[in-house]
Design a protein around this nucleic acid. Structure first.
Lengths: 122, 122
DNA sequence: GAGGAGATGAAAACCCCTTCTCAAACCTGT
DNA sequence: ACAGGTTTGAGAAGGGGTTTTCATCTCCTC
């Protein structure tokens, strides 16, 4: 069965504290505050496990390596800060219908990414 | 100076014929119809050059390797077919304002990707 | 048509991210 | 506390896409 280790708890807590999608490297940096010996391989193993158990969901942005965020948050989109590279969640959806699609295209979903500056960056 | 070679012409024509964003591999496949000996390294070299000279622009989609499309087409978005993996351009923009951004977030641009089935796929 | 810089093609090398390996350390149920 | 399998950490290995290498070929100018 699955154990509750310091490492896995630290990783879960990193997400709850951050409140935004995290890359594997960001997870490592944050979780090391609690478990300084944490290794990157352990982060990857646990991210995979946490996605499988439904605690996390992967977030894909254009031209970016994947981030992860707590699962089950309903439809929303993301903001990418060009200054610091951090990603934030945007509540709701401002996309009309699913775009004005040409005939024959059958939409099943969509992604919206807004680029710019986050509140912390000049 | 820069030369006009069969290979470069074939690559440029591949884009004009395709009428949609192409990945490096797709460019290779299409351009080989005109120049069967074309190599992948040449495709990469010319994609880079064509971007620098302003003929092409890179297209980034979530979790996908880059595509390229003719530059200077104005604001538009993309459709990714989950069945065949091809990407199509969608005219116009159905995004309201730039989303309902929380205070402090300063938008500079956005990307919209619609997923689904293209007209050619069942 | 000849000369020479630029371009090509095949393969090797790179890069970045991710996964595997394996001995040592850690949890959990008894 | 003990025994067992599970998890960890460091480094090596893997994988996909992209770039470099270098001998050869091609396009342009004279």
């Amino acid at each position: 069965m699955e154990r509750s280790t310091r490492q896995r708890r630290a990783i879960r807590e990193a997400f709850l504290e951050a409140g935004r999608p995290l890359s594997p490297q960001e997870v490592l940096d944050l979780a090391r505050r609690r478990v300084p010996t944490l290794g990157l391989a352990t982060v990857y193993r646990n991210l995979k496990a946490l996605v499988e158990e439904g605690f996390l969901a992967p977030v894909h942005l254009p031209g970016e390596p994947p981030r992860y965020e707590p699962a089950g948050q309903g439809h929303h989109h993301h903001f990418y800060c060009r200054a610091c590279g951090r990603v934030f969640e945007l509540p709701g959806c401002a996309l009309e219908a699913e775009g004005l699609l040409p005939p024959g295209f059958r939409p099943e979903g969509h992604e919206v990414t807004v680029y710019g500056r986050c509140p912390d960056c000049p």
